[in-house]
Design a protein around this nucleic acid. Structure first.
Lengths: 193, 193
DNA sequence: TCCAACATGTAACAAGTTACATGATTTG
DNA sequence: CAAATCATGTAACTTGTTACATGTTGGA
């Protein structure tokens, strides 16, 4: 049956302000895109469905002389659906899919000299991402001495960014540790074989 | 077009030993299931496709008097396809989807007294999972003084388990920190409102 | 005037889940 | 002998990606 996460992600975004499909697409390229995202093709289809369900309403805003922006607004119906979903504890935990970890599980089938480049590439991607996320945090909360003083709306944003940073840093640390271990392992095997 | 991760996950599993669809289903309930998994319905369909592609071959093993177990084995074709994939660096990074983080982003729409139970539930699930993963690590590598001395096949298993533990512990830590922050935030707001 | 960004949609396909369907074997 | 586990499959459906398709607007 599906849990329609995208539905609630869109309702959540619209609870902040009215948005067009294009705006929603862009939001998924920002902070929240670290934890949920969708392409415009999926978003426009979902918006149509939400309109039919009367969870949202539509109005047109002119952006220029001819360009029509279709704006969407939460209905009270949609608002209560969102609230219900937000406090409903998650039944099922989904497998977090991670292709690099999957590859590594089959380590024995990877040649020794191929492993290190794979790690190097992963690490450089992780560090790039960490840098980007920290920049975002700095831009948004750089002057904030104490996150306790943030307004409630910004607090959500702050928590999501710190989560993403923690996740990536933990990942990078594990990559470093594993590469060290594998290198030593090869050395050890080389010695004893 | 898709990247057919399941295809390579199955080929990887078959590189360790011959397996039936049922065996593969069970493997996804073990360690590697922390990073990739599939239901039996998807697995049987994929196995059929892999047979057609001649990446695997099939033979029948009797399990009892009437019960036929269809066993699959990597062909040399499948083996080289697996090797190629294992060393091909990942083009695209997929969004790691996390429904709890998504909810939290919409924090302002959650009533104060509803937030703490949500965190408590998440934390209890995380700690349960961490305990389970550490048990697995103990069972498999408990007597191992130094992972450097593991055989190469087990090393992959070890790395995947330590990865899962690091991931869950980092997650739990962030949950603890965030709950503290939110609690202080409410207190702060209560004082100043 | 060209290019990037703005703006919206559909179609085809791939991937993944749930439900339906059936039967054998082992263990208490 | 009942229940859990072993064992294999198909059908219907949802979700998500890629490709196709079109037109506007603002700035260099």
């Amino acid at each position: 049956v599906g849990r329609r996460i995208l539905k609630y992600a869109i309702l959540g975004l619209l609870s902040k302000r009215d948005m067009s499909g294009y705006d929603i697409t862009n939001e998924f390229k920002q902070a929240i895109g670290q934890f949920w995202s969708a392409k415009h093709s999926q978003i426009y289809v979902e918006l149509k469905k939400l309109l039919e369900e009367e969870a949202i309403s539509q109005y047109v805003e002119m952006a220029g002389a001819k360009l029509e922006k279709k704006m969407y607004r939460l209905t009270s119906n949609g608002e209560s659906e969102l609230h219900e979903w937000l406090v409903k504890p998650d039944e099922k935990v989904e497998t977090e899919k991670d292709v690099f970890a999957l590859r590594l599980y089959f380590l024995k089938d990877i040649a020794k000299d191929e492993i290190s480049p794979l790690f190097d590439y992963q690490l450089s991607m992780k560090y790039e991402k960490i840098e980007y996320l920290k920049e975002q945090l700095e831009i948004l909360f750089g002057e904030t001495s104490d996150p306790v003083k943030l307004d409630t709306a910004s607090l959500g944003h702050y928590l999501v960014l710190t989560k993403a940073i923690a996740r990536e840093e933990s990942y990078a640390q594990w990559l470093e540790d594993s590469l060290t271990l594998i290198t030593q392992h090869h050395f050890h095997k080389g010695e004893t074989d």
